[in-house]
């Protein structure tokens, strides 16, 4: 089967999961010229409610538009982790932020613990850049979307005044995975 990947970005309202989904969808769809579907789902709360965005990336046209068995899940809350690790494809990838996800599920999955929020707060100075740190980590773990495409999608969608911050956030996420998961980085998928 040709390349077909399902990604779920899940967390709590305010953590930037919706925007991260848009970045990823535009990176793969517009800059990598793949087929994509982006689905967003959130509760009535603007902040604090469970939310997720889902991106399907495929060489072939995408017929059924919903994620059924994700290849990769980003979980920014314990609730998201508990809820979604079961849906993962066997051997699938989970990126968690240990600041929020304390209990790691014991299952046949590849776990990447990346302190996304801490990096965003301490190294970038803005906690809200955690979603961009996460996409840096994503880019270091799998090669489903070209690194430069993700970078470009982020920079094209955000005000120029934030370019330096976003670049740094992306690079910090990327570097953290390369340094801490050397043997696994960009070998999966």
């Amino acid at each position: 089967m040709s390349e077909y990947f399902e990604v779920r970005l899940s967390g709590s309202g305010g953590q930037g999961m919706m925007l991260a989904g848009i970045f990823l969808a535009e990176a793969a769809g517009i800059y990598d010229d793949k087929n994509i579907v982006l689905c967003k789902s959130y509760g009535p709360e603007a902040r604090g409610g469970a939310c997720r965005s889902e991106v399907i990336i495929s060489e072939e046209p995408i017929v059924y538009p919903e994620v059924q068995e994700p290849d990769l899940v980003l979980a920014m809350t314990q609730e998201a982790c508990n809820k979604y690790y079961k849906d993962l494809k066997p051997g699938g990838i989970m990126i968690v932020d240990p600041e929020y996800v304390r209990e790691i599920p014991d299952a046949n999955i590849e776990i990447f613990q990346v302190p996304l929020t801490r990096i965003a707060r301490e190294e970038i100075g803005y906690e809200i850049t955690a979603n961009v740190v996460a996409l840096g980590a994503f880019a270091a773990i799998v090669d489903w979307v070209a690194i430069n495409s993700i970078r470009k999608a982020i920079l094209d969608r955000t005000p120029q005044s934030t370019d330096a911050l976003n670049k740094k956030a992306f690079d910090c996420g990327y570097t953290y995975v390369i340094n801490n998961y050397k043997e696994k980085a960009r070998k999966i998928g």
């Binding site: 848009i22 769809g29 517009i30 793949k34 087929n35 994509i36 579907v37 689905c39 538009p65």
Partner: peptide, 9 residues
């Protein structure tokens, strides 16, 4: 709601 809320290229 499915079609209207989803995004595609």
């Amino acid at each position: 709601a499915t079609l209207s809320q989803m995004s595609e290229k």
